[in-house]
Simulated assay, not measured.
Amino acid sequence: MRFLISLCVSLLLLINGEIINGQTTEPTTSISDPCYDYNTLDEYWRDIRQNSYQYSGYDDTLVEWSGWYRLYLNGESAQMSEWCVSDAGCGGETGLSLNGSHPTLEDGVETREVVGTHAWWWWGYSHECGAYNSTSIRVKACPGDYYVYEFVKPIISSPRPMYCAVAFQSISSDPCYNYESLDRPWRANNESGDYICDNMFSWNGWYRLFYYGMDIRMSETCVSSYSCNTDINLWLSDPHPQIEDGVVIREVCGDGYWGSCCDYKSRPIRVKACPGNYYVYELVNPLFWWCAGYCTGTVLFSFI
């Protein structure tokens, strides 16, 4: 009987692992989880929210990619961009972004298409999103609110392609109660006033928008050229969030000289709906050669 019991135990150990000198080991066929087995990639020039013209000599086709990677920007956890940004090469000439949203924890490992937009505006219609299709990559959402990517060599038909990243720092305090007031009525459609050039403004943190002392929000619809006292009028291409949504990321569009309401894609911003019927925005410097400004509507709103 003891022999049979020992034999059964040995067989179970062999199924789940190996016996070496009386000790069991982990199965040799186990596959490591990329959420805990990745390479760290922290390179500041990949940030789409920075001016990439200062460092445009990088090329991800020259990198020896191997395995999975987690993105950082200056030590802060980052993610690959889901947005096309005009004139942002993120260190190269063709900024690569995901053609769609990231997976959720429940999705596991997912394959995502990668598209690119050329960085240099004087080379024709470089502002068109998805001008290039690159090699698809695998992506996984991980516990702890971060992603890992199985980066591969991009298709070399696009000049100097680079995987672009964007970091959104954790909020140390609720921005609904920690913001700066911005009451500049001339941001509203067809309101005369000072010329707006938000590219030159030192944005820092969160802002609540006012119109002669009354709450107002960024426009969610196309703003025609020069109607809010700037060259490129910036507006949200998606609806504002609800209170239960918390902090969300929104894409910012800008009208241009070719007749399209979204000729340009500016840097994405964070937005939050707040108790008390108002919004706050984490505004950043637009990425354009010409003056650009965040535009508001002229009609007050209510989301409660």
Rank of each mutant, 00 (worst) to 15 (best):
S172L: 06
I31S: 13
L105W: 10
G259V: 08
I5V: 11
R187V: 03
N277T: 09
P175A: 01
E18R: 14
W83T: 07
I48E: 00
S266P: 00
Y212H: 08
C197Q: 11
D107P: 01
F201N: 08
S101E: 13
D194W: 04
G205C: 05
V166F: 00
F303N: 10
A165I: 02
D198P: 05
F210S: 01
G57L: 04
I137Y: 04
L300S: 15
E282H: 10
Q242D: 15
S77F: 00
Y179F: 12
L71H: 06
E106V: 06
G130F: 05
Y279D: 07
G124F: 08
P103M: 06
E76Y: 11
A141R: 13
Y55V: 09
V299W: 09
V166D: 11
R160P: 00
T230E: 05
C35K: 07
E113L: 04
F168V: 01
S192G: 15
I48P: 03
M214Y: 12
S6N: 13
L12E: 13
S101Y: 10
L300M: 05
R267D: 14
V85M: 05
N39R: 06
Y279N: 05
F301K: 04
W258I: 02
I48T: 10
E191Y: 10
G57P: 00
A292I: 06
Y212M: 00
V139R: 03
G124L: 05
T298Q: 02
G254A: 03
I5K: 06
D174M: 00
Y257W: 14
C253I: 02
W206E: 04
L71S: 10
D215Y: 14
W122D: 14
N199V: 06
I19F: 03
V271C: 11
S173R: 03
I171V: 13
W290V: 07
G144Q: 02
L300P: 06
P241Q: 08
Y53F: 10
S224Q: 09
Q50H: 07
G130M: 04
E64G: 04
S136H: 01
S56I: 06
N199P: 02
T135K: 02
Y125C: 01
C197F: 12
S192A: 13
C253N: 11
C262H: 08
T29Q: 07
Y294S: 01
I269V: 15
V223R: 11
Y257L: 01
C197T: 15
F301L: 03
W290S: 15
I269M: 12
Y226K: 01
S237I: 11
E251A: 15
W45M: 00
V85L: 03
G89T: 12
L283V: 07
P239Y: 08
